[in-house]
Design a protein around this nucleic acid. Structure first.
Lengths: 159, 159
DNA sequence: ATTATTATATGCTTAGAGCATACAAAATCG
DNA sequence: CGATTTTGTATGCTCTAAGCATATAATAAT
């Protein structure tokens, strides 16, 4: 039953996010991740998306071709690519995050504020128990609105 | 944050389920759905999986080729296909459900029994608010272990 | 300095998804 | 009751996005 709820919520997030993305699949997550971590490398992006390396390179190729992201050379490591969103990419990122937020909020609207509070507390505890590595944190938070998520339990757990 | 938890849980479910399925993607859900609703038609399966019609037909083709499912003629509608699991399919279905259950349980193990109880209550309330149609119920419960889920809130909401 | 590892890129192949089309059974409507 | 529409499946075709194998450059390790 808890599993069913997780699938239902994940469906909502994916649907709303993908609707604003240039293509289905992990593109929406890639955009929001790059948006949150400017200078992100392809390898870290790959781990967050659980894709193959070539799949990630091609995904980035498409984002660049769509004018949403750009490759720069990472200052500290001349092998790595530093990914950044273009202004158009920033706009898309915001659209994804707000669509995601709207869908989630309407699903949660049935709870009273006390229940929502309690649900959030339990969710935070579960999240802290789940997160192990930094890569995993990026994966879990791949569609998060970081600016809206103060006191992120994932961040707290890693620190 | 609640969204992040949903994605994390959905990841666990998908990963554990797919590990026991013959292929990645919606195959695991298809198997458990047919297992729970013997005689399910391709069209209903299609709606539960949110696939195109041809995609669903090909998926069923593969399940049949793998010896996991079989097509029968639906007694009440001679156009429709009645899908059933083979004995091998039943075995696979059980493996998927128990893998799913194990992963979910270990993620929830951090909660006390009171917290788990409370979390379940809130999840049930949210689920009841989310489910609209029977197709949607099938979709949400696509990886559910129906025999383990007594007092299913989704079922209750539809009745 | 040599070797191993890490980060990226690309050629190649392929699995799985959608669209368009075709056909049969059922439902609807005149 | 016959004609039309809708519904459920099947299949040919195309294509996108994914993986594997391989290559190259930069860094790390020995």
């Amino acid at each position: 039953m808890i599993g069913a709820l997780a699938l239902a919520f994940a469906d909502i997030l994916q649907r709303d996010a993908q609707a604003k993305a240039p293509e289905p699949g992990p593109a929406a997550s890639a955009i929001t991740l790059i948006g949150h971590v400017p200078g992100l490398s392809i390898e870290r992006l790959r781990r967050a998306l659980s894709l193959s390396h070539s799949g990630t390179v091609r995904l980035v190729d498409r984002l660049v071709a769509d004018g949403l992201a750009a490759r720069f050379s990472a200052p500290d490591d001349h092998r790595a690519v530093a990914l950044r969103l273009t202004p158009l990419g920033e706009t898309t990122c915001s659209a994804i995050l707000s669509a995601r937020q709207t869908g989630l909020a309407s699903a949660l609207a049935i709870l009273t504020s006390e229940e929502l509070q309690e649900f959030g507390n339990l969710a935070a505890k579960l999240l802290r128990g789940l997160v192990s590595t930094e890569d995993h944190a990026y994966r879990i938070c791949r569609l998060c609105n970081y600016t809206a998520c103060l006191d992120c339990p994932v961040e707290a757990e890693l620190a």
